[in-house]
């Protein structure tokens, strides 16, 4: 087991100019993992249990990390800082790198809740990060935002509608 992989870090905004790639090698040694990279140089031991809070030792220090994945991106929380990574060639397949989207994005309900208010109508032009609807769950209202610039293609929900996790809510088409 082991082998070379390329990981891209997203230090700033997804697809931003500060993107960094790491060609890492992972070896397994008796339950711990040895991770090395040459440029930038990296040497680390990762103690990986089945669940949560992996311990990482580098020459600089001892760190506890939490790892989760989401739509192909790997998110690491360490020291209150969140890093996101993806695998592949530079700028390709980067989740969230959608400055010039060519595909439609379908947005689903993140959890069971209720659509309180629609903030846009089908056919409206929206920009990435713009609120599309007001969603209530856990007694709190939050805006569900457009993941990319585009046109609101379809709205599958109406105001007051209860939705379950992963129910389709709306589609953003490229403009």
């Amino acid at each position: 087991m082991g082998g070379r992989r390329t990981l891209h870090a997203l230090p700033g905004r997804p697809g931003g100019p500060e993107e960094e790639a790491f060609d890492v090698r992972v070896e397994r040694l008796d339950g711990t993992f040895r991770v090395t990279a040459e440029s930038p140089a990296l040497e680390a031991d990762v103690e990986r249990r089945d669940q949560g809070a992996w311990s990482v030792l580098t020459n600089e220090g001892s760190y506890e990390t939490q790892v989760a994945c989401d739509d192909g991106a790997i998110h690491v929380l360490v020291g209150g800082e969140r890093f996101s990574f993806w695998q592949g060639r530079r700028g390709v397949g980067a989740p969230g790198a959608v400055k010039h989207p060519s595909a439609r994005a379908e947005v689903k309900a993140p959890m069971p809740g209720k659509v309180v208010k629609l903030l846009v109508a089908a056919g409206d032009e929206v920009s990435a990060g713009q609120g599309v609807l007001l969603f209530e769950a856990m007694k709190m209202q939050n805006e569900i935002k457009s993941p990319q610039d585009g046109i609101v293609g379809e709205l599958f929900v109406v105001e007051g509608q209860a939705v379950e996790t992963r129910d389709r809510m709306f589609v953003i088409r490229p403009n």
Partner: peptide, 21 residues
Amino acid sequence: PSPRRGELLPAAVAAAAVFQQ
């Protein structure tokens, strides 16, 4: 980014690499 970002990045890369593995 926190002032510790540069220091934390290698640990994050290592964890992500093992996760992916």
